[in-house]
């Protein structure tokens, strides 16, 4: 018993003040990329060719955050002259098109569907579906339940049964072997329901794009309401997206 109290005192209060107070992530963290539109076309082309995810459009100079895995190669290659990754982790969008960006994203809160705010603003229960990814997305969703993030203080919870859920949160490129289970879980959620695609895999197939063992993007299976980019999305990216879209 004494040990419990001693540890409790040592641990103290650890819950973050975000979103009331901003959080600064370490400068090496690769968040929202910022593109320099005046960059030399040849350098842009070189970055586009080298991009393992083929996420860079050399003509429009846009980066597709739905494909990008934030590996930082374009920043290294261009020495920051074409792409610079900022520490801004607020990257969720309400449409797939908005993920094609030069570094500006529309304010998510203004693009959310109003009836979702009314329905789920005070209480949101989500069923998570892991569908063919690498388990990094899942790991960083679980983190939201630790004391630092303490997701449930916002009235948001991940629940066991789809029957108890208001929507599904999907990670992974939907392997063919998870296609039916994903659909069945979706169907088991009562309407009205929300669909969240989280991570490069669920949005575009991620690192596994082109594989014939995957569906590749959730939206081709079920209409997606909220996109959360990243590989995996930082827990704060997810938290920001959930709060702004539903609150």
């Amino acid at each position: 018993m004494l040990k419990v109290i001693k540890n409790r005192l040592e641990q103290g209060y650890r819950t973050s003040k975000y979103p009331k107070e901003p959080i600064n992530l370490y400068k090496r963290f690769r968040g929202l990329p910022k593109v320099d539109n005046d960059c030399d076309g040849a350098l842009v082309q070189r970055c586009a060719d080298a991009c393992p995810q083929e996420a860079i459009d050399a003509v429009t100079k846009q980066i597709d955050l739905g494909r990008c895995v934030f590996c930082g190669l374009c920043e290294t290659l261009s020495e920051g002259k074409f792409v610079c990754f900022t520490q801004n982790f607020e990257m969720g969008t309400a449409s797939r098109d908005d993920l094609f960006t030069c570094g500006d994203l529309p304010a998510l809160a203004e693009h959310s569907k109003k009836h979702f705010k009314k329905l789920f603003g005070r209480s949101l229960q989500l069923r998570q579906i892991s569908a063919g990814g690498c388990n990094a997305c899942e790991a960083d969703i679980n983190v939201l339940n630790t004391p630092f993030f303490d997701l449930s203080r916002f009235g948001i919870q991940f629940v066991a049964s789809p029957r108890h859920a208001d929507g599904i949160h999907v990670t992974g490129p939907i392997s063919k072997n998870m296609r039916q289970a994903t659909l069945s879980t979706y169907e088991a959620v009562p309407s009205p329901k929300v669909v969240i695609a989280s991570g490069a895999c669920a949005i575009s197939g991620g690192p596994f794009y082109g594989s014939d063992e995957i569906v590749g993007d959730l939206n081709s299976l079920i209409p997606v309401d909220l996109y959360i980019p990243g590989c995996p999305p930082h827990p704060l990216t997810t938290l920001h997206a959930l709060l702004n879209y539903f609150k």
């Binding site: 080298a50 393992p52 892991s130 063919g132 690498c134 990094a136 998870m178 596994f208």
Partner: peptide, 30 residues
């Protein structure tokens, strides 16, 4: 098992070299 099968070995043998490190990093995220 098998539900997470996404064809990693086949990809590693067929994709351009630039994709290999990204796929290796996502064989098992942890």
């Amino acid at each position: 098992l098998g539900y997470q099968h996404r064809g990693v070995e086949k990809l590693l043998q067929s994709v351009p070299f630039k994709r290999l490190p990204i796929i290796a990093e996502t064989i098992a995220g942890d």
